[in-house]
């Protein structure tokens, strides 16, 4: 009992450390990458290559004046930034990060919450993220914020459908909601040389997932809730100091969550063909975690790359894309994958 408690706590701590370091690293990567894409130098004054810049940013956030507008709805206004980080912090419990390891004769699965409902619960927790944006938009008592909140609510409901459809299609050949079984299913190779990853048979589903993931995390080209050219800063217009920083962190952490989900569902998760996992538990842990983080990092880079390559959608275009393109394509993919599974091809 106590041993289990300790291993669980260690797993949680490991994730928290990784997640919280993702944010400053991503801040640096985003600023440097955007500078590279736009042929600028980017932050290069604080530390070598500007590596200490995130620390300076954090200091700046902490020492900025923390303003609460007098007309704001105080309880909701204070709660919104907290809710922004909560879903991202909880969903990681459901992502497997290595094979079962044996520590002192006990088998320990390398996943924090090994539950039957797995990915369904993950989607459920992730869907709570919209409340933070809506609450922030409503409670700020500012018309730009309100617009941001309304846009966030309709956008996130619309794209959640496409996202869920893509995820369900990925689960059909596996026959389980458990993400660890999804990873185990993807071991081996197709035709002897392709890794047996879901992307190859389910490329349509993966594209739907990816586009919906951009919309769910409110990243460009779907950052309409904060669209700075029309809404000042959208739902977080009135936020300053650490409260604003929390929204910022929430965005990066939910990007990391969805990247980890994409890696697990479509790219074999912690598994890589040709890698033999060590028998010593800490080496196996390091291998699994390293492979997963590498995949997540590639996805995060892709997020940044897209952000500085595409212009923002208009709201009616966004809705049209969600309901008239992604949803039908998602349903088509679901039926296709089901048929392929029935035919025994997957």
């Amino acid at each position: 009992m106590t041993q289990e408690l300790i291993t669980t706590l260690v797993k949680i701590t490991l994730w928290l450390v990784v997640l919280l370091t993702t944010v400053p690293v991503m801040v640096w990567v985003e600023r440097r990458a955007s500078a590279f894409i736009q042929d600028r130098r980017g932050p290069n004054r604080v530390g070598p290559l500007g590596l200490v810049q995130p620390l300076a940013d954090a200091l700046k956030f902490i020492f900025k004046e923390d303003i609460t507008p007098t007309a704001a709805d105080r309880p909701l206004y204070l709660l919104a930034p907290l809710l922004a980080v909560l879903p991202a912090l909880t969903t990681f419990a459901l992502i497997p990060f290595g094979p079962d390891v044996v520590i002192d004769g006990r088998t320990v699965p390398l996943i924090v919450a090994d539950v039957e409902t797995g990915v369904l619960l993950l989607l459920a927790l992730a869907s709570l993220g919209v409340y933070s944006l809506v609450m922030a938009g409503y409670s700020s008592n500012n018309k730009y914020s309100l617009f941001g909140g309304i846009r966030a609510s309709s956008q996130m409901i619309s794209y959640e459908l496409a996202l869920t459809l893509a995820v369900l299609a990925a689960l059909i050949p596996v026959g389980s909601f458990r993400l660890d079984e999804v990873v185990l299913y993807q071991q081996g190779t197709w035709l002897g040389f392709l890794p047996r990853w879901n992307v190859f048979p389910q490329f349509i589903g993966f594209m739907v997932f990816l586009i919906a993931a951009f919309a769910e995390t409110n990243r460009v080209p779907f950052d309409l809730p904060e669209a700075d050219s029309e809404l000042v800063a959208g739902y977080h217009t009135e936020y300053s100091s650490m409260k604003f920083a929390l929204f910022f962190m929430g965005e990066y952490m939910s990007m990391a969550t969805l990247s980890a989900l994409a890696a697990t569902l479509y790219f074999g998760g912690w598994h890589l063909p040709g890698v033999r996992f060590s028998d010593t538990w800490y080496w196996a842990l390091a291998q699994g975690f390293g492979i997963l983080l590498m995949k997540v990092a590639l996805f995060l880079l892709f997020f940044v790359w897209v952000r500085w390559s595409f212009p923002r959608f208009r709201f009616d275009q966004l809705m049209r894309l969600g309901w008239k393109v992604l949803l039908p394509v998602g349903i088509f993919n679901l039926v296709l994958v089901a048929a392929m599974t029935l035919a025994g091809w997957l």
Partner: peptide, 26 residues
Amino acid sequence: APFLAALQVLVYTGAILVLFLFVIML
């Protein structure tokens, strides 16, 4: 009933109540 629990959060709080908020704000 863990399946229902996940569905309840996903469907009710993730979609239906957001719809309510949307209408209230609209």
